[in-house]
């Protein structure tokens, strides 16, 4: 593991205020396998609950403890032998609990990783197996996933106990079509949103399991992925990305889009696209939205950051000498951007 501080990155200079994205540390996984994901998680290490970084390679998941001055030390590693790891699924307010998805192209298994308080012994258990289409970790140690095909489609909400040893399962009403992604609704903890293959946005009541509404958002944006929703003044503001979106000349390359929906009438209006600055191209590959910040890895290997309120692209992180960026996450506890490359490097930028 090496530590770096202060390397400047390219900032988008055409905005009124320049943002500050500064490299503060670098984690290097010595494993030769391909890196796939990164996140942050609360974990109790030597008796203290602290925010740790968790990284995933094809067959290992590692937990990194923060040392002084932005240095990190690997403290735990879970090993997998049969199915490769695809993604980390954080359960945001949980401690000593995190889920991971395993599979080849599609998710085949979801596993819970945890350690018991007494001996800090690492454990894992199978949470769900099958043909899993979409999954999201929620607050209050909950996980939602959709699985099965059209005829046996099922949406499950699981709640884990504090130690991770047991879980309660509730079934949410199925929209009877493939769900592409789930998103939490900020400010409304019992509401859950989903986008479907047939360009619908669906809303559930997590407490009752009811499917409240299915709303068509237009076929121009097929296969949209919902990242975050905000409820305000009776309206729902939804941030979407379009992995299959084509470049529209008048708008440049819209990577994210903000739409507003009236859930009562199912009518929606475009608010704004979040496009790349002129001279930059690429389509959405991976991304993360936290509060008013959206970050995306593009097919060009660049990371772009937008302020959702201001509408500007605020920073561009070009591929560095180690290679292209392949995944990006906001840290759960502070405004740090975690940017990863396939070779095992994870860079931490303060924003």
């Amino acid at each position: 593991q090496t530590k770096v501080r202060g390397d400047p990155v390219e900032i988008w200079h055409d905005s009124l205020e320049l943002s500050n994205l500064q490299l503060v540390s670098k984690l290097k996984n010595p494993s030769n396998s391909c890196s796939v994901d990164v996140s942050t998680v609360w974990w109790e290490v030597t008796g203290c609950k602290e925010s740790c970084i968790i990284t995933a390679c094809e067959f290992t998941v590692s937990l990194w403890k923060s040392l002084d001055d932005w240095q990190w030390r690997k403290v735990h590693t879970w090993h997998f032998t049969e199915i490769p790891v695809l993604q980390i699924i954080p359960l945001w307010d949980a401690c000593n609990l995190v889920c991971i998805a395993l599979g080849h192209l599609e998710i085949r298994e979801i596993r819970l990783l945890f350690s018991s308080g007494e001996d800090e012994c690492l454990k894992q258990s199978l949470v769900k197996s099958g043909n899993i289409k979409a999954v999201l970790g929620l607050r209050h140690k909950r996980l939602v996933c959709s699985n099965g095909t059209l005829h046996d489609h099922q949406v499950d909400l699981m709640t884990f106990s504090g130690s991770g040893r047991s879980k309660e399962k509730q079934t949410l009403m199925s929209p009877e079509e493939t769900i592409l992604a789930f998103a939490e609704v900020q400010g409304m903890q019992d509401a859950l949103l989903g986008t479907t293959l047939m360009s619908n946005i669906v809303i559930w009541n997590l407490k009752t399991g009811q499917l409240l509404k299915k709303m068509q958002i237009g076929t121009a944006y097929q296969a949209s992925i919902c990242h975050k929703a905000y409820s305000d003044m009776g309206l729902l503001f939804v941030v979407l990305s379009h992995p299959h979106g084509k470049e529209i000349e008048s708008m440049g390359s819209p990577i994210f889009r903000l739409i507003v929906i009236n859930p009562k009438t199912a009518l929606s209006v475009d608010v704004r696209p979040y496009s790349l600055p002129q001279g930059h191209t690429g389509r959405f590959l991976d991304g993360d939205v936290k509060d008013n910040l959206a970050a995306a890895v593009l097919t060009s290997g660049t990371i772009a950051v937008w302020d959702l309120f201001l509408g500007h692209c605020r920073a561009l992180l070009l591929p560095n000498s180690d290679g292209n960026w392949s995944f990006v996450k906001w840290s759960g506890t502070d405004s740090c951007l975690l940017a990863g490359q396939k070779n095992g490097s994870v860079f931490v930028y303060s924003y």
Binding site: M173, M188, D190, A191, I203, N205, T208, Q210, L211, L212, K213, S231, M233, G234, L235, V260, I261, N262, P263, K264, T265, L267, S268, V269, V271
Partner: peptide
């Protein structure tokens, strides 16, 4: 956005949709 674009807005949409939706 106005009501002409989005129709009548309800601040209690979540509770109202919950009471209208099939259990």
């Amino acid at each position: 956005c106005s009501e002409s674009d989005l129709g009548p807005i309800s601040l209690n949409w979540f509770e109202e949709l919950t009471s209208e939706a099939p259990p």
